[in-house]
Design a protein around this nucleic acid. Sequence first.
DNA 1: GCGACAG
DNA 2: ATCTTGTCGC
Length: 221
Amino acid sequence: MLRILKPPTTDLDELSKIQRKVAEIIVKRDEIRGLNTIAGCDISFSKKDRAYAACVLLKYPSLKEIDNKTIEVGVNFPYIPTFLAFRELEPMLRVTKDLKADIYMVDAQGLAHPRRAGLASHLGVVMDRPTLGVAKSRLCGEAEPPSDEKGSYSLLKDGREVIGAVVRTRTGVNPVYVSIGHKISLERAIEITLNTSPKYKLPEPIRAAHKLATKAMKGRS
DNA sequence: GCGACAG
DNA sequence: ATCTTGTCGC
């Protein structure tokens, strides 16, 4: 599994095989052991492949911040749609490692990926911890638009397979794309997404991590 | 061949 | 993701 961190190649066919292995390991059942804390992870990029990864630990369901961490890292792998994990997984693991949460929310897809192995799932499998993905836009799959009211959602499907949900976290605002990462059910992922979005489109864990990553980037450039 | 395409 | 000011709307 360390091959995910240090890919033996940059050949996309080989990396696809690694992702298929990750997909085989994903646990779609809810294995959360008491949900009292939730962490949000995000990364901001400045020039020259210099990145700032941030992780914020929040209490659940109060969403009060407990702790956070940011790191500066060099990134070599480029952004290639469907291969995001090979660019962002390592920084995310490093910033996430010291913050112990009952579940980690990632600003990316999880199961809702062509090979069923988005960044959120990679993180969960490598850490062997529950994760879910909440993305701002669609990577693959199709879904009916959910109704306008906050709380409504529709299933995201690839053919007949359900790979995630399109969730309205705020009335009248574009929905987010929710999918399981690891050791969680889609129903629970949707519930957590809604419970952590009291005011804005994006869930608080992701908003907090995004703000922190951006702040770290501006502060050191 | 053409369009789509997380961050 | 990042580059960037004002502006429309609740």
